Amino acid sequence: MKQKVRTAVFPVGGLGTRFLPATKAMPKEMLPVVDKPLIQYALEEAQAAGIDHFVFVTGRGKAVIEDHFDHSYELEDTLRRRGKDSALQQVDAFVPPPGRVAYTRQMQPLGLGHAVACAAHLVGREPFAVLLADDLILSRTPCLKQMVEAYEEVGGNIVAAMEVAQEETSRYGIITAEGGRAAAAPGELVGVKALVEKPAPEEAPSRLAVIGRYILQPEVFDRLSQTQAGAGGEIQLTDAMAAMIGETPFHALAFEGERFDCGDKAGFLCANLAFGLARSDIGPSVAEFLGQRLHALYGSKYGR
């Protein structure tokens, strides 16, 4: 019987230098998409997948994340007294129950693999999920829920994957898929034969890229403790996962949904537009603005 995935790890120790000066005093994970910070989207995705324990791997200057996932008694009392029930629900609904959230520090910026390893003592010897808040996914079914459903069928390690352009492979961990496949259809589960971190386009074994959602077996912690610095001089999670291939079932899920790279300024702006357009309360206004602006800039090509 497969162990239930009940713990999620959120590596949130990065400096967010690509968003300076906005991130000088505010963690990049707290940057808002419409009206929620990135890290809240990630936690709510984990909750929707049945996760009930949450581990944040933080760094200096990240205390505001801890405050966000706690009760603000003064704010809640003010909203209650003023009869602002809807606003009260918004600030209270996502806060996990007491004892379900833990924080640990990544004291050196040694890479994603190192950040995940910092959570080993809090995860224990059971399967767990990893979510990178920078990767925001707009989908009918939350991405991690899709992965948990796949995990219940096949077990082992599962990564979320999407097809990227050949020239973009040097930005991702790239999969060598069973059967030598270069791509996969949305919703398809593909066996993984090998992983390589950020290969040059001419050396990439496929166009299937790993993005920031993982379900991992606890043995990955053993591998991380033995992993040497890889690409970029950092301890790469991809290298530790690759070392487990052949020892445990390993699959990639070509998830249904659209992924936005919110570690990139253009990607972050596109995410705000896409999530805004998807909202019934503000979507029509956003669409009207975009239509007017595009028409003003580019003329009748975009109509009205």
Rank of each mutant, 00 (worst) to 15 (best):
L38R: 08
A266Q: 15
F56D: 06
A161T: 10
Y214I: 14
A183F: 01
P98F: 05
A87T: 07
D281G: 06
A161R: 09
A161V: 08
P186C: 11
P127T: 02
G16K: 13
Y73N: 07
F54C: 07
T248K: 13
A129H: 03
F69Y: 03
L15G: 05
E126N: 04
G263F: 07
V164M: 12
D135P: 00
G233F: 08
G267S: 05
H71F: 01
Y103A: 12
E288I: 06
A274K: 13
E188G: 02
L20F: 04
L195D: 13
L110T: 02
A271W: 12
Y103R: 14
G283Q: 07
R81H: 14
N157W: 04
V116E: 05
T248L: 13
Q3Y: 15
L277R: 12
V123A: 01
L15N: 06
G111V: 14
G299V: 11
R140G: 10
R279F: 05
L112R: 11
A296Q: 09
C143T: 15
A182H: 11
R223L: 09
A287T: 09
Q3C: 14
V91G: 01
T17F: 00
R213T: 04
G173H: 11
R81S: 11
P27N: 07
R140L: 13
Q89P: 00
E258P: 00
D67L: 06
G83T: 12
H251W: 08
S225K: 11
G50D: 06
A8V: 15
